[in-house]
Design a protein around this nucleic acid. Structure first.
Length: 579
DNA sequence: CTTAGGG
DNA sequence: CCCTAAG
């Protein structure tokens, strides 16, 4: 099983020390070498960390030269990139351990999760005082853009080399890698090269067909999220304090991208602590709405402290101080985990919540949870951050009524395509979902007292509900959900019930009001429920009196039938037990 | 676990 | 939407 226990707190490294037998997390790859060579060596010596599931695909040091980029860079700022691609776990597929410098035998291990970790380190000179604050971004990769390790690399290279003109950045001034990348270069040479290289690397090192060929193998565009991230706020995110700009030093930039399952990536970089504004994040998310269904991308940007850098490689323990939020979450996690162990409060509701929130896991915060899941699934082979909701390792009881639904929700690792089925709800959620909300949702357990994000019912949903009621009758909320809302993880049977109740009220009141005021509302309120629907509701209310409000409903339902549009009689016709 | 109902 | 009681 998964041994995901709360991380212990160490006096030295209060936050996330990792025990030796503990599965190594990606954080380890964030380590910054004191010396380049050493760093590489250490990194390569993954065994020391008991990292069996990671491999260093390649060291991309010197893949670019700032000079090249910046001809006029008079200073000797020369940065080298050390790229480590750590593909890991793949459902039932072994993942090789590759080390470029060493001919180690690839280690295989079959894990559940599938993913790729990409760690790119750029040595950075110095005192870049990075905050502990980490930035979590949800890359919500767009469907077609799944993060690819090759992609990441490519992007860096490309952008650094000025491959894509618009992606150019003044490295000299910022001394930071430009992450920007444009989507237009899909079939760029770099892409192909990178993919090829990786592919070969896998083959050679593991003697096994790399998953590069796998359908899941990310395409260059996949870095999309990352790119977007950079693009979103390239200047801000990448911004570095003047102090951090090093002359001869090396800028350290590390990013970790975890590519797992469909597409969950975590990118951690020693960027400045500036966080992307909520709006920005949201923007990004909205922009990639479609992706959400197929993949979840998480990008975390955090920074390393100078002091933290030391010993990271040496000690198995994580010396990087996690962001406050992580701390909080980890604590939360601990508590919950403990509770669960003790059999405390772990009720169906939790599961429900989980269901509902699953939908939004692509959101920044939720990513944490998602990641946890994945980590869990592969034995913590690549634990990113010890936080998030308690993992529901094996959902003891899947929703028997809607297995498909469960699948989509439980598995961030599922084939992206399956996720597509999850439902186009994004359209609506898109507008009113923010990562904060997401956070709320993902952590809305009784204890937190935070409530689920309000998601307005769309007319389509209302129609479905009405149809469901017409088919199954009032009170069969579970059934209705199974039939018509199986793909809407955010709508529970209780929600349906509540909505129906509200519809009844609305049908009643609107009928009475039936003023032209409605028209105004129509224009202003996107949630406005068409009169035709309300008519149906009224009609159904007559047929299926609501338990308690039936009387009042009926009374105001008088004109119902007549107004019902003939265009949709089907819903009513089949009434099984029309009274 | 599912519903009904109150808040 | 949340929470809780009841079946």
């Amino acid at each position: 099983m998964f041994s995901c226990k709360p991380y212990e707190v160490d006096s030295d490294m209060p936050i996330f020390p990792v025990s030796e037998d503990e599965p190594l997390g990606l954080e380890h790859f964030l380590v910054e070498p004191l010396h380049k060579e050493d760093w590489v060596g250490d990194l390569l010596d993954l065994d020391a960390f008991q990292i069996e599931k990671c491999f260093n695909i390649e060291d991309i040091s010197g893949t670019f030269d700032y000079d090249q980029i910046k001809p006029d860079a008079g200073r000797e700022e020369r940065s080298e990139w050390h790229g480590v691609v750590i593909p890991f776990t793949s459902t039932d597929t072994a993942y090789p351990k590759l080390t470029k410098g060493e001919g180690e035998n690839p280690k295989m291990s079959s894990e559940k999760s599938q993913g790729i970790n990409i760690s790119v380190h750029e040595e950075y000179p110095t005192d870049t005082k990075c905050t502990d604050e980490a930035c979590n971004l949800d890359f919500s990769t767009c469907k077609e853009s799944c993060l690819g390790n090759g992609g990441l690399e490519n992007q860096f290279q490309g952008s650094l080399k000025g491959d894509s003109g618009d992606a150019m950045v003044d490295l000299t001034s910022t001394n930071i890698p430009m992450l920007k990348y444009t989507n237009n270069h899909r079939s760029s040479f770099l892409d192909q090269v990178a993919a090829k290289e990786l592919h070969e690397a896998f083959k050679n090192m593991s003697g096994q067909e790399s998953f590069v060929t796998d359908k899941n193998w990310p395409k260059k565009d996949d870095l999309y999220g990352f790119e977007n991230y950079a693009e979103l706020d390239s200047m801000k995110l990448l911004k570095v304090d003047a102090n951090s700009i090093v002359k001869e030093g090396e800028t350290s930039f590390s990013s970790l991208v975890e590519y797992s399952g469909g597409v969950t990536g975590l990118v951690t970089g020693a960027l400045n602590n500036e966080r992307m504004s909520q709006n920005q994040k949201r923007k990004r998310v909205d922009g990639c709405e479609s992706l959400k269904t197929t993949s979840d991308f998480k990008v975390e940007i955090s920074s390393l402290d100078e002091g933290d850098k030391a010993g990271l490689l040496v000690s198995p323990k994580r010396s990087r101080k996690p962001p406050r939020r992580y701390i909080e979450e980890s604590l939360d996690y601990e508590t919950k985990s403990h509770n669960r162990k003790c059999g405390i409060g772990r009720k169906s509701k939790d599961r429900n919540l989980h269901d509902r929130y699953q939908k939004y896991n692509w959101q920044q915060e939720f990513q944490a949870e998602e990641l946890v899941y994945e980590d869990d699934s592969f034995n913590g082979g690549c634990i990113q951050v010890p936080f998030g909701l308690p993992m529901e390792k094996d959902h003891p009881k899947k929703n028997k009524l809607s297995p498909g639904f469960e699948d989509s929700k439980d598995n961030g690792l599922l084939d992206p395509k399956e996720k597509l089925d999850i439902e186009p709800l994004l359209v609506e959620s898109q507008e009113d979902i923010s990562e904060d909300e997401c956070f709320v949702r993902s952590h809305t357990l009784k204890g937190n007292g935070r409530r689920k994000r309000h998601i307005s019912w769309t007319p389509e949903e209302v129609v479905k509900l009405v149809e469901g009621v017409s088919q199954c009758g009032v009170g069969k909320w579970t059934e209705i959900k199974r039939l018509l809302f199986s793909s809407s993880s955010h709508r529970t049977s209780v929600d349906l019930k509540d909505k129906w109740r509200n519809l009844l009220r609305a049908s009643c009141t609107q009928l009475q009001i039936k003023e032209k005021v409605e028209q105004n509302r129509k224009q202003t309120s996107s949630n406005y429920v068409p009169e035709s629907i309300l008519c149906r509701v009224r009609e159904l209310a007559v047929i299926y009196p609501y338990p308690r409000d039936s009387r009042s409903k009926v009374s105001c339902t008088v004109p119902a039938v007549s107004s019902f549009p003939a265009s949709t009689p089907s819903a009513l016709v089949p009434l099984p037990t029309a009274v």
